[in-house]
Amino acid sequence: MPRQSTPSKRVTIADVAREAGVSRSTVSFVLNKTPGQTIPETTRQRVIAAARKLSYQPSATARALRRGRSDIILFLMPNWSTGEAVAQAMDAISVALAEHGLTYLLHPRATSNRHLSDLWRSVTPALVITVDDLDDDDSAALDAAGIAHMTFGLGDDSRTPHSYQEMIGRIQAEHLIQTGHTRLGYATVPDTSLFTFAESRLRGVQQVCAGYGLPSPLALGAQPGTEAERSLRAWRSAEVTAVAAYNDEVALALLQAARASGVTVPEDLAVIGADDIAAAGLSCPPLTTVRIDPSAFVPALVSTIMAHLNRTPPENAPTIPDGELVLRDSTNVTKKRR
């Protein structure tokens, strides 16, 4: 028969009190560092030693009741592809919030069958963060429960006109045009959940082309395989000599399609990506890209979160981090095009 494990009994404050030979209130005063209490140092050390011996962990529910709020920040994550850039950003946010004693909890919004009200009743977060606006019923339910909520656009230009998404596209286009290309293409992402971001980056490329009096970039899909190869043929027929890809993954699909189609990069077609993932420098040829530090957004976001919790104005205004061009061989041609 398979072995069954029985969950161990949770260590309580009463267990710590018995081990230390003191009252439960004394344990509470010591572990919670309650001000105004005179407790001998020897007693305090005995309580701490007992808690460590028993591996005591305070109840999250009790901690929330004591503080008057939960320490959980619940982010209802859209159905995004969690690539390196998103993962790095989420990790940086989690670390920053931990410094404020807060726990960052990600929950997939679009793929869950669980009703949102059931979720936050069980989790009891201090704050719910969404990318899309909540519907009226969910918003009213959160307000009634006393749970703060905020919408974080994460570069959606309908909310932040000068977003870093457009900036990435502008850096790509400026580089390609400065290296002599006058007819550009744009490789969009096959993931529909990222269309908003892809459109913003495309808009940045379009703005730069318009500023130079050049035609608008020819935007095509670049799904790895047949679609990417078909797009390559269309760009070549339209005399496109350089393509700005939505991100590095899309750019890498183009490099593979170019090899399969006999198109030489960068001599026949220059390709630039975005995000500077680890594989970008290992491709053949190595991929020129735009690097953004995801942690640059964190101070302003954490400031906004703390402002929502404390009902005070944010200390840090939103900022757009500088993008850095990482020049590699996929666009590095010495001969200027005319």
Rank of each mutant, 00 (worst) to 15 (best):
residue 197 F to T: 09
residue 151 T to F: 02
residue 3 R to A: 09
residue 22 V to H: 00
residue 57 Q to L: 10
residue 101 G to D: 11
residue 228 A to H: 08
residue 117 S to P: 08
residue 271 V to L: 15
residue 92 A to V: 01
residue 33 K to L: 13
residue 317 A to R: 15
residue 191 D to W: 03
residue 9 K to F: 05
residue 314 P to V: 15
residue 92 A to M: 01
residue 226 T to I: 12
residue 75 F to N: 12
residue 328 R to V: 06
residue 146 G to D: 12
residue 290 V to T: 10
residue 181 H to W: 05
residue 127 L to Q: 05
residue 227 E to K: 07
residue 11 V to N: 06
residue 222 A to Q: 08
residue 87 A to E: 04
residue 125 P to F: 02
residue 21 G to N: 02
residue 80 W to P: 03
residue 318 P to S: 04
residue 147 I to Q: 06
residue 134 L to Y: 05
residue 128 V to Y: 04
residue 273 G to H: 05
residue 227 E to T: 13
residue 113 N to L: 01
residue 83 G to T: 00
residue 40 P to R: 14
residue 236 R to S: 14
residue 157 D to R: 14
residue 193 S to F: 00
residue 156 D to M: 11
residue 336 K to T: 14
residue 219 A to T: 07
residue 90 M to L: 14
residue 131 V to I: 09
residue 25 S to Y: 09
residue 112 S to G: 06
residue 80 W to G: 12
residue 6 T to R: 15
residue 71 D to G: 06
residue 247 N to Y: 06
residue 53 K to A: 10
residue 146 G to C: 03
residue 172 Q to M: 10
residue 70 S to D: 13
residue 115 H to D: 12
residue 93 I to A: 01
residue 263 V to S: 15
residue 70 S to R: 11
residue 80 W to Y: 15
residue 271 V to T: 01
residue 201 R to D: 03
residue 104 Y to Q: 06
residue 169 G to V: 09
residue 301 L to I: 13
residue 268 D to W: 10
residue 172 Q to F: 06
residue 25 S to N: 08
residue 197 F to I: 02
residue 123 V to N: 02
residue 86 V to T: 10
residue 136 D to T: 15
residue 300 A to W: 08
residue 326 V to K: 00
residue 8 S to P: 10
residue 258 A to C: 13
residue 131 V to D: 10
residue 22 V to E: 00
residue 87 A to H: 02
residue 117 S to D: 12
residue 131 V to L: 12
residue 246 Y to A: 06
residue 185 G to I: 00
residue 15 D to L: 11
residue 263 V to A: 15
residue 302 V to E: 03
residue 64 A to F: 03
residue 137 D to Q: 13
residue 237 S to F: 05
residue 273 G to Y: 03
residue 81 S to I: 08
residue 28 S to T: 14
residue 53 K to V: 00
residue 229 E to P: 00
residue 10 R to P: 13
residue 157 D to Y: 04
residue 276 D to A: 08
residue 121 R to I: 02
residue 165 Q to F: 09
residue 152 F to D: 07
residue 150 M to E: 14
residue 153 G to D: 10
residue 129 I to S: 06
residue 270 A to L: 03
residue 228 A to F: 11
residue 202 L to A: 00
residue 16 V to D: 07
residue 261 S to C: 15
residue 4 Q to W: 09
residue 191 D to P: 07
residue 48 I to M: 11
residue 243 V to L: 11
residue 298 V to G: 01
residue 68 G to S: 04
residue 206 Q to L: 01
residue 183 R to M: 03
residue 66 R to S: 15
